[in-house]
Design a protein around this nucleic acid. Sequence first.
DNA 1: GTCTATATTCGGATAGAC
DNA 2: GTCTATCCGAATATAGAC
Lengths: 244, 244
Amino acid sequence: MAKRQARFTAQDLAEDVRLRDDSPDLWNTQLGEVPRGLLTSAVRCFAANGFHATTTRDISEGMGLSPAALYVHFPSKELVLFEIIRTGHERALAYIQDPAVTAVDDSAERLRAIIARYTTWHARHHVAARVSQYELAGLTPEHYAEVLELRHQTNEFLRDAVARGMADGSFAPVDVKRITRAMLSLSIDLVRWYRLEGSDSPEQLGEYYADLALKLVTHPGPTPPSDNDTILDPPSPRRSTNAG
Amino acid sequence: MAKRQARFTAQDLAEDVRLRDDSPDLWNTQLGEVPRGLLTSAVRCFAANGFHATTTRDISEGMGLSPAALYVHFPSKELVLFEIIRTGHERALAYIQDPAVTAVDDSAERLRAIIARYTTWHARHHVAARVSQYELAGLTPEHYAEVLELRHQTNEFLRDAVARGMADGSFAPVDVKRITRAMLSLSIDLVRWYRLEGSDSPEQLGEYYADLALKLVTHPGPTPPSDNDTILDPPSPRRSTNAG
DNA sequence: GTCTATATTCGGATAGAC
DNA sequence: GTCTATCCGAATATAGAC
């Protein structure tokens, strides 16, 4: 007999502070309350145990329903996963293609806005984002292809912003492909470790990573926008300080 | 009936260029050839389909053996996973605690060596590392705890290197915890996208990410070690250039 | 140490009552 | 739309021959 692995019931998961995020607000409002609740329950289960280790019973019990109830709202477990991953990718992409970004002309400020928002989105929805990023293997080939297209659009959008800043001289000459991948890594990898209860709010982490991203593309040598020594005014207050 | 998800047989996987890495050289040499082959087969399956979507048949068929043969060498599927993950974490930790790092006194060079080696290790063993990083949920609580301890040691080792450079003035004042996490994110997230067939060798990516890491902790303003303009001598030749 | 055959449990999905 | 009951394929692990 296999030794029991670490698995958690839907009841455990609902109380797990590590699984707090804003996913209940994430779903298409055209869906009723029950299907949206099922998606939220599924997100927690998938994030904690993985898609294949999650049973349809786990998901429906998270809403206090019987196993069969799931199939009234979704035709299969895979389609629950697809709805989660598709929504996650669409929302993240829309969040960085917001006017708050596209209206910005200055290349540096535009890159800053993209990284800040992309990071903030993944932190705020870190549980759903973890499923979106790490459970792609559970999709059918058709659904996987559809998600890939959204990922390409996202990557292109960031790549263009970096290339543009380099072309107009705002940034130092950099390897656009490698730098873009590094920035994506920072924003995406946080879903592995981020907790809403930690010291950084989603917005604070967004600002911090936007600063890092700009450091990576800034001209070396004398700082471009002057003000050199005056280290007053840190970018934004931290919820709890823990270092200099 | 569930629509068929994207799953690959052990035969497919053995030929998949995306799953080429150095894991066959990774295992304890005290193990015989067959168990080491089974671990390599399991790594490919777990990396491509996930732990729970992989059957014991998948693993043993990868070695041309019957399903039952696996249990002569390993008591359970979970223990195959544990052996992979434990080995992965031990090897990565040992690789950055190598004399090539610990003998370096200069704080900046030491950090550079750590990031270069940690990145190189994950790139060279990206398939095994992907399993080590993303399949932790498949472990029993006891085995998970054992792996966590290795992860703590790794994080502490990097954190100390950053804190030391800040203390001796080699680095600008930074948030050690957040910077350390960002550096780990860069090195670890590459297992999501890295392919040996890509344009960067593991060593080249290691050098590149070491440069990025130093940019994140460098004093702003005038560059510290002088030589400002001479951009001859890039750190190491790229296997195929694709940008400036 | 490897095989064939199988015990046994589990889980996705459905049938049909209410 | 929700329930109870259940079908049935699949997967871990074992038995026992060679």
